[in-house]
Write a protein that binds this DNA or RNA. Structure first.
Lengths: 329, 329
DNA sequence: CTGAAAGCGCTAACAC
DNA sequence: GTGTTAGCGCTTTCAG
C-alpha cells in the first residue's frame, strides 16, 4: 500500500506539500502552484494511493468512528441503517459491537478502538445498572445508557394514544388492551388508559405474555374472544398477528368480529390477514436522530434534547367502524 | 487518555517493559520479574489505561476490522449479527459501510480504514459489474463480489426443492410456482421445475412482480385463484403472505382452498394466517460462515469453499394433504 | 531482565 | 510556495 512519502519522491516534492495538496488545502493555507498540485494529484492517482484513515485518527485523536452496541435484533436494522447512513454524510463510520451478556466488555472494546461516540441501542433493562462507573471517566459521548435520557427518543405513550383514539373514534366502547409486559409495553398501555379515561370508558388490560409460554398466550386469546369486545389494542404487532392468527383458526373474520390494532408497524404487518392497522415507530429516523445527537455531543459537548418522535397511525383493514351502538355514520 | 509512557514513568520502568507486560508476553519472550509485572499491571489498572487499538493497527498493519457493505435491509440483520458475533470471537470488529448507490465509494471507504476483509452483503445484481477493477489490486480478501463464488453460500435450488417435494408428497399435482424475478428467485424456481420434472408434473410459473406494481400483483393473484391449483409455491415469504392476504379478502381459507408454501422463513411468517409452511435460510449461520471464510482468506490466502447450506423445511399450517385425487391418506 | 533507538504513515508548526 | 522538524502511541529489534 503506497504512502505519501512515495508520492513525494515520485513527484519530486516534500511530504508536507503532498499532505496539503491531498487534503485540498493548497488554496487557502498555503499557496502551492497549480502545476505542482496537479502533478501531485496525478502521481497519487497513478500510484493508486488511498489515504490511511487509521493513521489520521491516531494523529488527530479523532477516529471518526462511532460504536453501536446492541444485541442486533432483526427489528433494529432500520435504526442501525439510519445511524449508519446519517453518519456517512458526516464522514463517520459505524462499528458494531455485540453485547453478548457483558456490557462492560462491549464498552471497553469501543474505548480500545477510540470510538468518538457510543450508541447503546436498546439495552436490556437489567444491563443499565451493570455499567462500570469508571467507564464514564472517559467522557465519551453516549446515547442509550442510563445517565442520559436513555433509550431512543420516542414517545410511546402519546403514540399509543393515537391507536386508542382511532378505535374510540370508530365508535368502539368495549376496547381491550392486550399485553403490558416490559417497560415499553407499559408506556403504551398507559396511553391506552388515558384515552379510555378521557372518554369515560372502562379500561381492560389482558396480560398474557410474561413468563409467556405459547400456552398462556392461547388462553389469553380465548378469554379475549369470550369477552366479545368491540376492539382490541395490542401493545405490539407480533401480538396482534398472533391474535389474528387464532381468530383465523376459528374462522372468525376481522374486523367483522372485532377490530384489531397493533403497534410498531413491523414489516410484515402490512401483509397480515387482514393488513394490520398499527402505529409506526420511525426506526430509520430514530437512528439518524441518534447520530445527530451524538455528533452534537461530540462537537458542542451539550446534549440536544430533541422533541421525541410520535408515531404515525397506519390505517389498514383490521379496524372498522362499529355499528352496534348505532355508531356515528 | 493515558498512555504506556505514563505507566512506564509511574511504575519506574521502560516503555518496552510495559508493552511486553501488557501484551502478556513477559513469560515467554522476555523474562520479566513477577514483581515488576504485577507492579506494571497494577499501575495500568489504577490509571485506567485502555490500549489504543488504532495505533496497534497502524504499527502492525493489521486493523482487525472487517467491513460489511450493504443496503442493510431488515432481513439482513441476522446475517450481520452472525458475522459480528463470530468476528468478536476472534478479536475482529465489524464496521458498516452503507452502499448508497456507489459501490466504488463504499469499497474505497473500506480501504481507507484499512479493513482486513470485506463482505459485500447481498449486492444488487447490477452493481456486480460496476466494481472498479483497480480495487482488486489492493488484494483485500472479500466475499460477495463477482470474482469469487459470489453471494453467500446457500443452495437456493436444493432448498426450494424441499418445498416443492413437500407439496408433491402431500398429493398435490397442479402446483403453481409464483414469482421468479431476480437471480435468486430464479434459482428457487429452478428447484421447483426439477421436482416437477422428476414427478412428471407440468410446471406452471406465474411471474407477477418485476416492474411489479401492486396492481400487477393483484392480477397475478386473481389468475392463480382462477387457475384452481392444488398448491402454490411462492418464491419468497412476503409474496406468500400477500397471496394469503388476498385469499383472506375473498374469504377463501388456506389450506382448504389450496396449499401455500413460502420461502425464507421471515420472522412474521410464523404468525401469518395461517402460519406459513416455508423453507428457512440460516441467516445467522451464514453470517458466521462468511466471517470464517474471510478469516481463512486473511490467514491462509486460500478460499475455503464450504458446503453450501441447505434450508430446512418448516412445516406449518398453510399446507395440507390433497384429497381430490383420492390422495394417499 | 531492561532500555535506547528506529519506525508505522500522517499532521502541523515554523522556518527558508 | 516549499521543506525541515517534531510528534501521535505503540511495536520491535538489538545492545547492555
Amino acid at each position: 500500500m503506497i504512502s505519501m512519502k512515495e508520492i513525494a519522491n515520485r513527484a519530486g516534492v516534500s511530504r508536507t506539500t503532498v499532505s496539503f495538496v491531498l487534503n485540498g488545502r493548497y488554496k487557502q493555507d498555503m499557496k502551492i502552484s497549480d502545476e505542482v498540485a496537479t502533478r501531485v494529484l496525478a502521481t497519487a492517482d497513478s500510484l493508486g494511493y488511498v489515504k490511511n484513515e487509521l493513521v489520521q485518527s491516531v494523529v488527530t485523536g479523532k477516529s471518526r468512528v462511532i460504536a453501536v452496541i446492541s444485541e442486533f435484533h432483526e427489528i433494529m436494522m432500520s435504526v442501525v441503517k439510519g445511524c449508519v447512513e446519517e453518519a456517512a454524510k458526516y464522514g463517520y463510520l459505524v462499528e458494531l459491537i455485540p453485547l453478548e451478556e457483558d456490557i462492560n466488555k462491549a464498552l471497553m472494546t469501543a474505548v480500545k478502538y477510540r470510538a468518538e461516540g457510543i450508541f447503546a441501542c436498546d439495552l436490556p433493562d437489567k444491563m443499565m445498572d451493570e455499567v462500570d462507573p469508571k467507564f464514564f471517566t472517559f467522557g465519551i459521548p453516549s446515547i442509550g445508557l442510563k445517565h442520559n435520557t436513555g433509550r431512543m427518543s420516542f414517545n410511546q405513550m402519546k403514540s399509543a394514544m393515537l391507536a386508542a383514539e382511532h378505535l374510540v373514534g370508530l365508535g368502539h366502547r368495549k376496547i381491550i388492551c392486550f399485553g403490558m409486559d416490559g417497560s415499553i409495553a407499559q408506556q403504551r398501555a398507559e396511553g391506552y388508559r388515558r384515552v379510555m379515561a378521557e372518554h369515560r370508558l372502562e379500561p381492560v388490560v389482558f396480560q398474557p405474555e410474561p413468563p409467556g409460554s405459547l400456552k398462556e398466550l392461547e388462553e389469553a386469546v380465548a378469554r379475549i374472544i369470550k369477552a366479545r369486545p368491540d376492539a382490541v389494542f395490542c401493545v405490539n404487532d407480533p401480538l396482534a398477528m398472533h391474535l389474528l392468527n387464532r381468530l383465523y383458526k376459528r374462522r372468525l373474520f376481522v374486523p367483522d368480529t372485532f377490530s384489531v390494532a397493533g403497534f410498531g408497524n413491523v414489516s410484515m404487518s402490512e401483509l397480515a390477514s387482514p393488513p394490520l392497522t398499527t402505529v409506526s415507530e420511525p426506526y430509520y429516523e430514530t437512528g439518524r436522530c441518534v447520530f445527530q445527537r451524538i455528533l452534537n455531543l461530540i462537537k458542542t459537548g451539550s446534549e440536544s434534547a430533541p422533541e421525541p418522535f410520535i408515531g404515525k397511525l397506519i390505517l389498514r383493514e383490521s379496524t372498522a367502524k362499529n355499528t352496534k351502538y348505532g355508531g356515528k355514520k
